[in-house]
Amino acid sequence: MTVLVAGSTGFVGKRLCPELVAAGHSVRAMTRHPESYRGSGAPVGGDVADIGSLRTAMADCAAAYYLVHSLADKDFEHRDAEAARNFGRAAAAAGVRRIIYLGGLGADADDLSAHLRSRREVEGLLAAAGVPVTTLRAGIIVGHGGISWEITRQLVEHLPAMVTPRWVHTRTQPIAVDDVVRYLVGVLAKPETAGRAFDIGGPDVLEYVDMLRRVAKIEGRPFVVMPVPLLSPRLSSLWLSLVTDVDTTTGRTLVDSMSNEVVVRDNSIRDLVPFEPLDYDAAVLRALGERAKAGRTS
């Protein structure tokens, strides 16, 4: 099957492309800079802001993966909405039979953050032109280079003691990036997943503070937590930008989302794509190992 991957050079996309090739698919890796692409699949030029380029990139594709977001942009909601609308329309015009999208966990009944609301809005906009969408909703994805994981790792490695706001007690259900990729590849072979949304997560439901403590234990580092309930989202994001390499805009967007519980409420994906996801500690060890390997080869 010929498939397009939008976001082929990103955290998830660069891992997904080789797995799709290994599964026997013909992969078009969409990028704004195809001349410099060195990953798996055939590079193809395309920009989610340019619907014409999308139609060309999608020509003769049976399915298209959408792994795009604009977290670092202050106007990310508008940009992501326009990009999703373009992608859905281009897919319909090109005759694409399915879109597979990686979105975010969070209960619709909750007062979702702007980031999570945007993720949910994108689901609808991708499908608005009539192409069935399969959505996989994930919380924190653990793997070398992932923004949420890097915040966790850097906080532990840079701070022996941490001033913590209320959001550190929010529950989440982290998942290893390799398991996200397994689900993304798996649903492609399951036509019955078209037009449906699925929650995906690892086996552990943890508070953010528990995640930090477990990383500290694995790395053998001291880690003391000092609660400060009134630490505002703005101050939290400024603080993150000081002690991690995440920019303030992205940090604020993520901090706002940390007040929302993001746990799996429907395990039906496990019946359709059956395997045992890694637990949190194993995912952390794999992420740290990948980082060490990348350091040795850079």
Rank of each mutant, 00 (worst) to 15 (best):
M1V: 10
M1D: 08
V5T: 07
G7Y: 03
G7Q: 08
S8E: 04
G10K: 05
G13R: 01
K14S: 15
P18V: 00
V21Y: 00
G24F: 02
V27F: 07
R28Y: 11
R32K: 08
R32F: 02
H33D: 15
S36N: 14
R38K: 14
G39C: 06
S40D: 12
S40A: 15
P43N: 10
D50E: 08
G52R: 11
L54E: 00
L54M: 13
L54V: 08
D60S: 15
D60F: 13
C61H: 05
A62K: 13
A62F: 09
A64W: 05
Y65V: 06
Y66T: 03
Y66Q: 02
L67M: 13
S70Q: 13
L71G: 14
A72D: 13
D73S: 13
D73L: 12
K74L: 13
F76E: 04
E77D: 12
D80K: 04
A81D: 12
A83C: 09
N86Y: 06
F87T: 03
F87S: 03
F87D: 00
A94Y: 09
A94D: 06
L102P: 01
G106P: 01
A107H: 12
D108R: 15
A109W: 10
D111G: 09
A114Y: 05
S118T: 15
R119M: 09
G124P: 02
A127V: 08
A128Y: 05
P132S: 03
V133F: 03
V133R: 01
E150D: 14
I151S: 00
R153V: 05
Q154Y: 08
H158S: 15
L159G: 04
L159Y: 04
R166P: 00
W167Y: 14
R171L: 15
R171S: 06
T172G: 11
V177D: 05
V177E: 01
V177Q: 00
D178N: 13
D179W: 01
D179K: 06
V180L: 06
L184E: 03
V187T: 09
P191S: 08
A194H: 03
G195R: 07
D204H: 07
L206V: 10
Y208N: 11
D210M: 11
R214M: 12
R214T: 07
R221M: 13
P229H: 10
P233D: 11
S237Q: 08
W239T: 11
S241C: 04
V243N: 03
V246F: 04
T250K: 04
T250F: 05
T250I: 10
T253F: 07
D266F: 12
E276M: 11
P277C: 10
P277R: 06
Y280M: 03
Y280C: 01
Y280E: 05
A282K: 12
V284E: 05
R286P: 01
A287R: 02
L288M: 13
E290L: 12
R291G: 11
K293E: 14
K293P: 00
A294R: 13
A294W: 09
